[in-house]
């Protein structure tokens, strides 16, 4: 299979896109992913599926990931004048990474038996702009998996034939797999609590009787 750079070059030649990045991956397996701009997912997907050299006709896995707002600290070496002598000092710069939700698609080819090519689509934020195009018209296997991402993360897929909750019951409010979801408080009876569960169980303990 071609390298990710070759695939990226070919997509850019055929489709004018504002954003198509290759994201690094430091682990030894090193499957890097293609970050595609949110609105053009269907076109990129169709291109990857129908391209003669790739024929990525099998979408194996659709995952939702929650990236809440966080502060990223990067260490930067700067030359600073200290008491008249130039020294190299490490400074920590803090940048605020805005929160977003991400959907990751793993694509393989059953015809040519190669893969994977990893596609990523990101939403603007976690609150109201959580729309992404649905890739169900391209790969039917995304149908149930995108419903699950909607159910558990709250990403709304435009163009999905049947977007409703799949694992939780219909009247459920909230998106359970997000990092800031608070589980309901049913910790009345915990025989062996520790760490966070102890904090939650303590709320149900009777008040201490001070003799």
């Amino acid at each position: 299979m071609e390298t990710l750079e070759q695939i990226k070059a070919r997509i850019e030649k055929l489709l004018p896109l504002t954003r198509l990045d290759i994201l690094p991956n430091e682990c030894p397996a090193g499957e890097r992913s293609l970050l595609v701009e949110a609105g053009r997912g269907v076109e990129v997907g169709t291109l990857l599926r129908d391209d003669a050299q790739l024929r990525l006709d099998y979408c194996s896995n659709v995952t939702g990931v929650d990236w809440p707002e966080s502060v990223i600290k990067t260490k930067v070496k700067k030359k600073v004048l200290v008491e008249g002598v130039e020294k190299e000092v490490e400074e920590i710069i803090e940048t605020l990474r805005s929160g977003h939700l991400e959907v990751v698609y793993h694509l393989y080819s059953m015809e040519l038996k190669h893969g994977p090519v990893v596609l990523r689509l990101r939403t603007e934020n976690r609150a109201d702009l959580t729309h992404l195009p649905s890739l169900t018209p391209v790969w039917r296997s995304a149908e149930f998996q995108e419903r699950e991402v909607y159910d558990l993360y709250g990403v709304i897929f435009d163009g999905h034939p049947d977007l409703r909750r799949i694992l939780m019951w219909d009247g459920f409010v909230g998106y359970p797999m997000r990092k800031d979801y608070m589980a309901p408080d049913d910790f009345e009876y915990e025989p062996t609590p520790h760490d966070e569960v102890l904090e939650l169980a303590k709320k149900h303990y009777p008040p201490e009787v001070k003799a």
Partner: peptide, 10 residues
């Protein structure tokens, strides 16, 4: 503690 990164195994 594995290094940061991601992987898909099947």
């Amino acid at each position: 503690r594995p290094k940061p990164g991601e992987v898909y195994g099947r």
